[in-house]
Design a protein around this nucleic acid. Structure first.
Lengths: 340, 340
DNA sequence: GCCCCGTCTGGGAGCGCTCCCAGAACCCGC
DNA sequence: GCGGGTTCTGGGAGCGCTCCCAGACGGGGC
């Protein structure tokens, strides 16, 4: 590479030891937060580190130690869809926030068409201590594959084929349930839903919530239209199907804002007024929700918290903490706008 | 961390050397593609590597060598906005695609409120060989600061305070120019623009293109409304201002799809028909464009190419290539939909 | 008094590579 | 024949840490 970007300049651990008046070993112990270091030494080392502006060499730590001091963020499957979703933005911010101050590198990986095994090999090859796997497609085999190698991982989004893989997810079930209860509280009586694909947990869980909400009021749970993907077009098709089956429906719970957009378009072009004739509730509270016409009432999930929680869970496991919850569901909240 | 995720198992370079019947040094030379290795040795080493499934230890290479074998992707300023933009998704994919097969790690970094100097220190501290800096805010000092430390970087988006920092950007000027020419070809005669903030190159370049397009047909270039940020609300305000100043305008070029959404809303609520009364052209071709009502005619930029080009440029520099272009502009294209 | 255990410390081997150096082998021209 | 290059090779000293070991010190319990 560019010849001679000369060897890293900063002070080494030895320098710190000299200044602090202790040995390399003791400095190392302080850096790694081990016990069996006197308060006096600890202070001295911290002072020396601050004075010299010392920062440990990542490669050396990794080479010498038994850990890689890095975790991977793996975007499974085409990545396109996940990333295109602003959802991912918040997650990333959360991950980063939780990592702040720790000496842990964040490596980014995506499923390339080529990769596959390479990726698993790399991840389990000692380059990272653990991985955050964002995988929306419930049947994605990667989470399980990785988990079985013994690599500590946390999956974002409940994996369908997960076995006992630790995961973090929004509480999709209760989010949907709350949305339906809200619609019922508005006096709506014929509440349909546009559900996501069968093979995604996020879709199934929201559908269950909808079912449950209706069932607990003794209302029928027939008006379901499945869409194949999270796109406005797909949402529009589903809406058309619903209107064909029940022209007199008065509310729709749509499993994603982006599909709700398509549904809105169809409703309006058929002359239904939203929310007067038909109330619409989405899910995600993405940018799309507030820019929709009318602005969409939707279920918000805390995406940043999503990333933070995943990271926290992984780091805790790496730190050897016991009795961690195998999975965690994050609360959602209803954001009321104009569409319902 | 989890005690005893035992030391990385794979074979070491010495093993490869033994099997190939050469010395460590020669294996190292082959791996790093140096010259002065006989064809015979090279073949033998490659065979041995394949047979053993050898993969070099990243930490050791970095520690021993003079390069880090990693590059950083730095999301400058709040990150929130950049990331929320699907724009970033494509860039990331492009970066990753370009990196495939190379033994280069991609480290992700964001500007934390806390960081600042820490980040510069880390980046110039030898942890990475170079950095891709995504910075939409033109006056962001980070690109220049990093560049001045001598760290090879490529900035995504033309930096205003950039000096001679290498950058990659969409050809915003010609994109806007093309949009205006298109509007003129439709017979529009009173073409306004909603421009982005003054402090962002992307906004300024698109404005210049609009100006130029009108000027070359001898049309007046007065109908400019600046918005402070790339939001629908801001776009709506700007549209209102324009209508106040020129109720009879018949076209608007909006510097971003997301602002165009706000503009559309205002136009429609005032009874203007789009595109019959007023033609609207956006910029970016984001998801928003196709879901808008009516679907937005807009200027597309190849975001994936953006990422690929940035990465290519950086790697080329790291490889010591000479005479690289200091900056690169990527072509845009007009996507015709219903709004114009 | 003794030993044992818990606390704290320093020394030094070695992680798996790269890169410098020295030297072998070979070609060229004179 | 000799000197001077260019091509190829191996040996081995580190890169900057961590972690093991050995040992020093102190405060119990018997």
């Amino acid at each position: 590479m560019t010849e001679g970007r000369s060897r890293r300049p900063g002070p080494r651990i030895e320098e710190v030891a000299r200044v602090a008046g202790v040995s390399k070993s003791t400095v190392s112990r302080v850096i790694n937060g081990e016990k069996y270091v006197s308060e006096r030494s600890r202070q001295a080392v911290h002072r020396a580190i601050a004075m010299l502006g010392y920062s440990p060499n990542h490669a050396a730590r990794t080479l010498a130690g038994s850990k890689a001091n890095a975790i991977a963020l793996v975007i499974s499957e085409q990545g396109s869809r996940v990333l295109a979703d602003p959802f991912f933005a918040g997650v990333l911010r959360g991950v980063h926030a939780e990592l702040a101050g720790r000496h842990v590198q964040l490596l980014l990986m995506m499923n390339q068409p080529l990769d596959g095994d390479d990726q698993v090999a790399y991840l389990t090859g000692g380059h990272v201590d653990g991985a955050l796997v964002v995988s929306l497609h419930g049947e994605d085999p990667l989470p399980r594959t990785l988990h079985e190698t013994g690599l500590p991982i946390v999956v974002g989004g409940r994996p369908l084929a997960g076995g006992s893989v630790p995961f973090v997810d929004a509480d999709n079930f209760n989010g949907a349930l709350g949305a339906v209860r809200f619609l019922i509280s508005l006096g709506r009586e014929k509440i349909a839903t546009i559900a996501g694909p069968h093979d995604m947990a996020v879709g199934m869980d929201r559908l269950s919530g909808w079912r449950c909400g209706l069932a607990e009021h003794g209302m029928p749970v027939e008006l379901v239209a499945h869409s194949n993907e999270f796109t406005p077009e797909s949402g529009a098709l589903a809406m058309e199907e619903l209107l064909r089956r029940a022209p007199d429906l008065d509310a729709v719970f749509v499993a994603a804002d982006i599909m709700a957009l398509g549904a809105l378009r169809v409703l309006q072009s058929r002359g239904y007024r939203v929310p007067d004739d038909v109330a619409v509730v989405g899910f995600d509270d993405s940018v799309l929700a507030s820019t929709a016409v009318p602005p969409l009432t939707t279920v918000r999930q805390d995406v940043e918290g999503f990333g933070r929680t995943m990271t926290w869970r992984l780091l805790a496991e790496l730190a050897g903490e016991e009795k961690l919850p195998q999975s965690m569901l994050l609360p959602t909240s209803l954001v009321r706008r104009a569409s319902a």
